[in-house]
């Protein structure tokens, strides 16, 4: 096979209706970053381990490198940029900054998109449970302690505790 197969897709990204022709072999995050210039989602391994590419698809967090862009046809995709614009995780982001729950920041968008799922459930969680929930997201800088602190603080505030 020599040609590069492409196809038309239509999807909603961060609330905006988007129609594009995509290469079928391209994964979702390459599409978001390259075609839509949404560079907040990062690529750390492209084999589904590091979690830097985590994005929300149809309401749940997924690995953006383990899904083809073409598969997102008709889907609702939310990236860190979208979560920021809607203010859904403004409290979590503020807690990350205040607690210095990031250093290089390369993992932060994925970490936040994942943690957003935990917060959405609005159920109490122990530090161990928070660590467990985030254990598919690699951070090389912080050692995780500050991240757990920031998520815990935000969750407790939301639960009024």
């Amino acid at each position: 096979m020599t040609g590069e197969e492409t196809t038309e897709i239509t999807l909603t990204v961060n609330g905006e209706r988007i129609a594009r022709r995509v290469r079928v072999r391209e994964h979702l995050v390459d599409f978001l970053r390259g075609e839509l210039q949404l560079t907040g989602s990062h690529l750390g391994c492209e084999h589904g381990i590091c979690g830097a590419c985590s994005v929300r698809v149809d309401g749940v967090v997924v690995r953006g490198c383990l899904m083809l862009a073409v598969q997102a046809d008709g889907a609702e995709v939310t990236t860190i940029e979208g979560l920021t614009d809607t203010g859904e995780i403004a409290d979590l982001q503020a807690a990350f900054v205040e607690r210095n729950a990031l250093q290089c920041g390369f993992c932060s968008p994925g970490m936040l998109v994942t943690a957003a799922d935990l917060l959405k459930a609005a159920k109490p969680a122990t530090r161990e449970e928070i660590r467990n929930f985030l254990s598919g997201n690699f951070c090389r800088c912080t050692g995780y302690h500050a991240i757990v602190d920031a998520v815990e603080t935000t969750l407790n505030k939301r639960l009024g505790r």
Binding site: T39, L102, F106, S108
Partner: peptide, 20 residues
């Protein structure tokens, strides 16, 4: 707190691969 941290958590960092 670090001004750079505020950019990073908003997905507004500028890593080298973000530059075109």
């Amino acid at each position: 707190s670090r001004p750079g941290a505020r950019r990073a958590v908003a997905g507004r960092g500028t890593y080298t691969d973000d530059v075109v």
